[in-house]
């Protein structure tokens, strides 16, 4: 689908990416920064998923009645791996945020910067 001569899905992906980047850069709360990072990740995953789309393609599962063309399965494998990586990054970040909160009593970056 086209919007102003651009693919609509790509427009959505870029917008989502920018929303995430804005959250990551502009928010002061570490947790919100992490959410922003997750939104950015989602944008990239969505971009990869759209890459696997084939016009009129069947799912690449060999059962009776399926015929070519097939949707490409590789992007899905990539996104699955990407999600695993993103979850690990989120887990490590959350653990670090917990530790920061336990030590300094705050997770607002402007308050953290005022600490000696």
């Amino acid at each position: 689908m086209l919007l102003f001569g651009l693919d609509l899905d790509y427009v959505a992906v870029v917008m989502l990416f920018c929303v995430g980047l804005y959250m990551l850069v502009a928010k002061s709360n570490l947790l919100k920064k992490l959410l922003g990072l997750n939104v950015m990740e989602t944008a990239v995953f969505a971009f990869i998923v759209t890459a696997g789309m084939v016009e009129g393609g069947d799912p690449p599962i060999m059962v009776a009645g399926t015929s070519a063309p097939f949707a490409s399965p590789i992007p899905h494998a990539m996104v699955l791996t990407g999600i695993v990586v993103a979850v690990s990054v989120t887990a490590v970040a959350l653990a670090l945020i917990v530790q920061i909160h336990a030590h300094f009593g705050t997770i607002e970056i402007d308050e953290l910067k005022e600490l000696p």
């Binding site: 980047l21 990551l24 570490l30 920064k33 990072l37 950015m40 990740e41 990239v44 971009f47 990869i48 890459a51 992007p75 990539m78 990407g82 990586v85 990054v89 490590v92 970040a93 670090l96 945020i97 530790q99 920061i100 030590h103 300094f104 953290l112």
Partner: peptide
């Protein structure tokens, strides 16, 4: 933990760019 988190945020964005380029 704070230094590591700063590293993580910047590092994760750079990894995302890499994934985007790969895609």
């Amino acid at each position: 933990a704070f230094a590591a988190l700063k590293y993580l945020f910047i590092g994760a964005v750079s990894s995302l760019l890499m994934l985007f380029a790969t895609a």
